[in-house]
Design a protein around this nucleic acid. Structure first.
Lengths: 145, 145
DNA sequence: TTATGTGCAAAGCGTTTGCGACCCT
DNA sequence: AGGGTCGCAAACGCTTTGCACATAA
């Protein structure tokens, strides 16, 4: 749980280049769910040699290695930009604030269990799911945004 | 509930061309969740004049008019192909059989209510959601596929 | 009649890939 | 040393769009 992304790369025998180390660090530091363009901007700020092609190759590699999770939050039409987050965390789903695009993570054991039960009822064993809630902030008495 | 897609186009004042009528008919007859390529193939079988550009324009128009729902089932990487279905039906979610890509629809009031509650707990009013279950068929005693 | 829709082909966008140079192990 | 990786630019797959012609209302 406290292993760094680089630790996990080494554990899987992935070759560690300067670029990959930089991208791993950017991912490690990310509190949001950055897309490739954002990752590239942040990585290039540390090391301008990094090309966007390398970022694409690296996130794909890390995703296939189970180190990153990829998301495609909607509800934008067309090819949504993929966004990434560290996979080595407790499982959670996402609520997207449609007023500003903010992504809020949440954990709910009831809904996990319910999904499993629904799949079973339909004659399936659940292997994965995608759950995204889209909402607007409830009205509030103070003037905060 | 029993209004045809063409009825709904007229109700919204959309101009009805031969192409749109044909595409509407194909959508009406579809029991699956066809993508644009499939829609074009089926429409062109009825009227070969229809170009794929028109299919793209039409499904976009119908989606923006609330007549169609668009889905992007995963978990394929990259730009997933969009798939469409008639929006004028009881709300439901989807379970995708990852062994063959088959899409099974289901309705579950408990999970709908639970999602609303989760959003409220986080301080949001739920405006929409995306729920896709990915599963494999349970083992069975007979030899059927 | 005239605003809209259509077909065609080209452009757009996010992502992937072929290639020769380069680097980790 | 040598296979993996990189940067670059071209290619890709799905979708959108500019243009000239056709058509619904």
């Amino acid at each position: 749980m406290t292993e760094t992304i680089i630790d996990r790369c080494e554990a899987r025998g992935l070759r560690l280049t300067d670029q990959r180390r930089t991208i791993a660090r950017v991912l490690e530091d990310a509190a949001d769910h950055p897309d490739v363009e954002q990752l590239h901007a942040r990585a290039a700020a540390i090391d301008p040699r990094i090309s966007i092609a390398t970022v694409y190759r690296t996130v794909k590699l890390l995703e296939e290695s189970g180190i990153l999770d990829r998301h495609e939050f909607g509800p934008a039409p067309g090819p949504a930009r993929a966004r990434y987050e560290d996979a080595d965390r407790e499982h959670h789903d996402h609520l997207i604030d449609i007023t500003n695009g903010e992504v809020i993570e949440f954990v709910d054991d009831d809904i996990e269990a319910l999904q499993k039960r629904i799949a079973a009822r339909l004659g399936y064993r659940l292997k994965g799911h995608r759950l995204e809630l889209y909402g607007v902030p409830l009205a509030r008495r103070d003037g905060r945004t």
